[in-house]
């Protein structure tokens, strides 16, 4: 499979990365090279093979339902580019 300019732009939109037309054009062959290279996997017969679920055998541990965190608003907001009245602030969202 290959991507064209429109697809590259769509991927960039999905990924929320602004690209200029020139950057998008440059990305077309770059991404296609990589995609064609990874498509080697089509040679592998994976009929009936279960996708890997856990890298190393391990079990889910369920946490106790106890309040052990929170109440750290200053720490949460400390790195915010914009924070006001205890909130993070972002450019106005119109719904």
């Amino acid at each position: 499979m290959s991507v064209d300019l429109a697809q590259v732009k769509k991927i960039a939109t999905l990924a929320r990365i602004a690209v200029s037309d020139r950057q998008a054009e440059a990305l077309v062959p770059e991404l296609n090279n990589i995609l064609h290279w990874v498509e080697q996997l089509n040679e592998v017969d994976t009929e009936g093979v279960a996708p890997l679920e856990a890298v190393v055998p391990n079990r889910t541990r369920l946490r106790e339902d106890a309040v052990t965190d929170g109440g750290i608003r200053d720490a949460v907001l400390a790195n915010a580019p914009a924070a006001e009245h205890g909130f993070f602030a972002v450019p106005k969202v119109i719904e």
């Binding site: 946490r63 106890a66 929170g70 608003r73 720490a75 949460v76 909130f87």
Partner: peptide, 20 residues
């Protein structure tokens, strides 16, 4: 995360580093 779920808290008072 271990942050509380109760209703009506001050903004961002029930937020852990995981939730953020």
């Amino acid at each position: 995360s271990g942050a509380a779920t109760s209703f009506g808290a001050e903004p961002n008072a029930q937020v852990s580093l995981v939730d953020a």
